[in-house]
């Protein structure tokens, strides 16, 4: 089955033509989103084209340390995006997030390539870069939602937080209810998605593999493992961020530093 149907420029153009439908709706409903949709589409095309060119060189060159540096650069960008979206203080949370993203992405990527795929060279660009990027993308979404919920919860429910501390809780015990809320909010969609995968939603990795010419049974195995590793990497990254953040964002009296949240 390993044949890929190439999309030529005409096909790509015809595909993009479909955007006229949502653009028409956005225009008619006076949403003010027409310009931003066009701009976002243009940015997407240019960015993906550039990254495609870059990846071609990266795959051809395929040196482990270049791949690793590329991974670190992606982690920087992911950390910056997460900080921007959560509106958390970069000085306080930039480092914990960066460390958490990097550690969990590297660990799980290497586990996947080395132990699951059983590849000899774990830093092979063709596997390392896409898996690393996939994990970062998922970690980003989960961490943004979880950290916003966590810090917002502590800030909003100061009375509850202080009630626990004032009755003998350790910092970990006093923050645990907020961590619980954050985990539930961030991971509930992942769990719900897993439950309906293949029935309601056709997963992206599987579709991509099938369109790329893989056998469905291979695509399914990849899909299962991809779901598992994104779930695990997101959980590890969140826990590492929280553990480091607790040391940096709370003072010795258990007070959330004002500068922790913008």
């Amino acid at each position: 089955m390993n044949t890929v149907t190439e999309i030529n420029l005409l096909g790509l153009g015809l595909g993009l033509l479909l955007l006229l439908i949502p653009l028409f709706v956005l225009y008619k409903c006076r949403t003010g989103l027409v310009h931003s949709t066009l701009s976002a589409t243009a940015r997407m095309i240019v960015q993906l084209w550039l990254i495609g060119l870059y990846l071609q060189y990266l795959f051809a060159y395929d040196v482990w340390w270049v791949n690793l540096i590329w991974g670190i650069i992606m982690t920087f960008v992911a950390t910056g995006t997460a900080i921007q979206r959560t509106r958390l203080n970069p000085k306080m949370l930039g480092f914990p997030m960066f460390v958490a993203f990097l550690i969990s992405a590297i660990l799980i990527t290497l586990y996947f390539i080395g132990l699951v795929q059983m590849e000899q060279s774990v830093f092979t660009a063709r596997y390392f870069i896409p898996i690393f990027g996939l994990l970062l993308g998922n970690m980003l979404g989960v961490n943004v939602l979880a950290l916003s919920t966590y810090f917002e919860g502590i800030r909003r429910e100061q009375q509850m937080y202080r009630y626990l501390l004032g009755n003998g809780a350790t910092l970990w015990e006093a923050t645990l209810p907020f961590l619980r809320q954050a985990i539930v909010k961030a991971f509930n969609p992942c769990i719900a998605n897993m439950a309906v995968m293949g029935l309601v939603a056709m997963p992206g990795t599987m579709i991509g593999q099938i369109l790329g010419g893989s056998d469905p049974s291979t695509a399914i195995k990849y899909q299962i493992i991809i779901v598992v590793i994104t779930f695990v990497a997101s959980m590890i990254s969140l826990m590492v961020t929280i553990v480091i953040a607790q040391h940096r964002c709370f003072d010795a009296m258990g007070r959330l530093k004002q500068i922790a949240v913008n």
Binding site: E157, Q159, M160, G166
Partner: peptide, 14 residues
């Protein structure tokens, strides 16, 4: 803090 029992004003626990 372990010596203390604390009751805040009109505490509304979740």
């Amino acid at each position: 803090r372990r010596l203390v029992a604390y009751v805040p004003q009109e505490l509304a626990l979740p």
